[in-house]
Simulated scan of single mutants.
Amino acid sequence: MFQPLDTPQPKQLPRTVEEVVTILLNDLPLRDRVVLSTLSEEELDTSVYLALAKSIREEFGLYNGNDSLIASCNSFLGVEYDSYEDPAMVIIKELWKKIKRNHRLRVIKG
């Protein structure tokens, strides 16, 4: 369902959750965005997390010292998320929230 993401160059690594969400939104095909918009948070925690978390960690430097991005993820912890939440999951949930706001299927009356 989800395609591998283009890997940013080291000097181009995003520094905030918002920057990563923008990159992911630009990389996700419309079909995947629509599918994500229909998922519940529980479904997000299992299927999407398993598909995207490792790629997010590797491609955006969560494994190798993107301290600014880690700090940005941590700023959500204890406020909007459980204090033990994985930084990759913070990014996935913020992506999901943005997609839910912008890509909901709507009934069109004819």
Results as ranks from 00 to 15, higher is better:
residue 6 D to K: 13
residue 104 R to F: 08
residue 110 G to F: 11
residue 84 Y to V: 06
residue 73 C to K: 02
residue 43 E to C: 07
residue 103 H to N: 15
residue 57 R to Y: 00
residue 37 S to M: 06
residue 21 V to T: 08
residue 12 Q to N: 14
residue 61 G to I: 04
residue 22 T to R: 11
residue 81 Y to H: 12
residue 23 I to D: 09
residue 15 R to S: 09
residue 96 W to D: 05
residue 97 K to I: 01
residue 96 W to Y: 07
residue 49 Y to D: 00
residue 82 D to P: 14
residue 85 E to H: 09
residue 88 A to V: 04
residue 36 L to G: 06
residue 4 P to N: 03
residue 93 K to L: 14
residue 6 D to P: 02
residue 102 N to A: 10
residue 13 L to A: 07
residue 107 V to W: 10
residue 52 L to M: 09
residue 68 S to Q: 14
residue 65 G to P: 10
residue 82 D to Q: 15
residue 43 E to K: 14
residue 97 K to D: 05
residue 31 R to F: 11
residue 104 R to Y: 08
residue 96 W to Q: 06
residue 71 A to L: 13
residue 2 F to W: 09
residue 71 A to W: 14
residue 6 D to A: 15
residue 58 E to Y: 03
residue 41 E to C: 03
residue 34 V to E: 08
residue 8 P to A: 09
residue 24 L to K: 02
residue 97 K to C: 03
residue 41 E to Y: 04
residue 100 K to I: 13
residue 7 T to N: 05
residue 41 E to H: 05
residue 67 D to F: 09
residue 91 I to R: 00
residue 34 V to L: 08
residue 68 S to H: 11
residue 25 L to V: 08
residue 33 R to L: 15
residue 44 L to P: 00
residue 80 E to C: 13
residue 14 P to L: 11
residue 58 E to R: 11
residue 1 M to T: 12
residue 85 E to L: 15
residue 13 L to Y: 03
residue 13 L to D: 10
residue 11 K to A: 15
residue 96 W to I: 00
residue 78 G to V: 15
residue 108 I to S: 12
residue 36 L to E: 02
residue 22 T to P: 02
residue 76 F to T: 10
